[in-house]
């Protein structure tokens, strides 16, 4: 039960597991971005679900790695033009 767990500040060295939804715009659908990601950054990629049409590519991805590596990987994906959401998609409600 997580209720009583006390929180510690994140250490940059701990390996963390991050669950994401990636959305590819049409122009990126054919690019091997996840392969590139695995080579550019020290992260383990694990695809859990994917659906690709002409209009959009949606990939459900687990990223394992040190916090800094994961953060850099997400930044690169975003810069490339992929929209990156946490597994919850939108956490900020109105």
């Amino acid at each position: 039960m997580p209720a009583k767990k006390t929180s510690k500040p994140t250490s940059q060295d701990t390996v963390q597991q991050t669950r994401l939804w990636l959305m590819y715009p049409p122009k990126l659908i054919k690019k091997p971005l996840i392969w590139e990601l695995g080579h550019k950054f020290k992260v383990v990629t694990n695809i859990r679900q994917a659906s690709v049409t002409d209009e959009i590519g949606i990939v459900c991805l687990e990223l394992d790695g040190k916090r800094e590596a994961v953060k850099a990987a997400i930044k690169w994906l975003t810069k490339t033009g992929v929209s990156v959401e946490p597994v919850e998609i939108s956490v900020i409600a109105s």
């Binding site: 009583k4 929180s7 994140t10 975003t78 959401e85 946490p86 597994v87 919850e88 956490v91 900020i92």
Partner: peptide, 19 residues
């Protein structure tokens, strides 16, 4: 940016033992 705030909140939610 909104999407950074969004990802951070998801991380906080996963990290702390809160409802």
């Amino acid at each position: 940016h909104y999407d950074e705030v969004n990802r951070l909140c998801a991380e906080i939610a996963g990290k702390f033992g809160w409802a």
